[in-house]
């Protein structure tokens, strides 16, 4: 094995993740090459020294201090978090729009009765306009013509 190959494997050798064959090759090279053996010794010492470092623990009450920093009423806030995404917002808004349109259609159906009422309202409005016109041309104490007053028909629709 050449030094270049050995140097490429020495870190894995220290990590003990080489195959048995690679391990034997590296060990054979390290026995012969003092420069690579020096590199190996340095790396091994570095890894061992890192293992000596203590595992720092957060002080007791970490969760209490953390939860105090979280936004108030997290569940309520979280319930609205999906709406921050445009795609999800569309996924929520579209069904809501369809539901609202359906509700409107159920509550205010376009029925024939409604059309008759609409016609009736138009005729009444026309009558009011005629009254206003007559009032504008009123020449004395003459009463309004009876023919202008709408008469209720039997089916509920008015006629002039």
């Amino acid at each position: 094995m050449k030094c270049k190959t050995a140097r490429g494997l020495v870190s894995e050798y220290v990590s003990r993740i080489l195959s048995a064959e690679q391990k034997q090759s590296v060990e054979a090279h390290l026995r012969e090459c003092s420069a690579c053996e020096k590199l190996h010794a340095d790396m091994r010492q570095a890894v061992r020294a890192l293992q000596l470092l203590p595992t720092d623990q957060p002080a007791a009450g970490f969760w209490n201090r953390l939860s105090a920093r979280l936004p108030a009423s997290p569940k309520r806030r979280w319930a609205w978090v999906p709406l921050q995404s445009p795609r999800l917002r569309l996924q929520v808004a579209l069904p809501a729009l369809v539901a609202a349109a359906t509700a409107m259609a159920v509550m205010f159906p376009k029925t024939p009765e409604r059309s008759v009422r609409h016609v009736q309202s138009s005729k009444q409005a026309l009558y009011v306009l005629q009254c206003v016109e007559q009032h504008a041309t009123y020449g004395g104490d003459r009463l309004l013509g009876q023919e202008a007053i709408p008469v209720e028909s039997g089916n509920g629709a008015s006629s002039f």
């Binding site: 140097r7 020495v10 870190s11 894995e12 220290v14 590199l39 010794a41 340095d42 790396m43 091994r44 010492q45 570095a46 890894v47 020294a49 890192l50």
Partner: peptide, 20 residues
């Protein structure tokens, strides 16, 4: 990642060796 780990270990090893 591999090359950085190699360099980091080698550097730490050299520094520690000089300390020893």
């Amino acid at each position: 990642v591999k090359s950085r780990l190699f360099n980091a270990r080698a550097e730490l090893g050299r520094r520690l060796q000089s300390y020893v």
